[in-house]
């Protein structure tokens, strides 16, 4: 592809660039994995939203007939 004969200096620089990008990408993958582990293990326990509202306040159950109040 190249019209130039291989040149040591160019190859050295190109290798440094490829190595750097490769290592940076691997570090990024590792970081996202670590973040995922932390987020999943640290998150609040999840359960079906059947007895609590999102704010944690108890869900209002249907009011009892007004006549029964003391």
């Amino acid at each position: 592809m190249s019209n130039f004969p291989p040149e040591h200096e160019i190859h050295r620089r190109r290798f440094s660039r490829n190595l750097g990008v490769g290592l940076a990408l691997m570090a990024f993958v590792a970081l996202v994995f670590a973040l995922t582990v932390v987020k999943v293990t640290q998150g609040d326990m999840m359960h079906a939203n059947d007895h609590e509202s999102i704010t944690g306040a108890p869900v209002i159950v249907p009011a009892a007939p007004s006549g029964s109040a003391p």
Partner: peptide, 10 residues
């Protein structure tokens, strides 16, 4: 200086 090394991007 035909090819930038990784340090140049840094």
């Amino acid at each position: 200086t035909p090819e930038a090394g990784f340090g140049d991007y840094v």
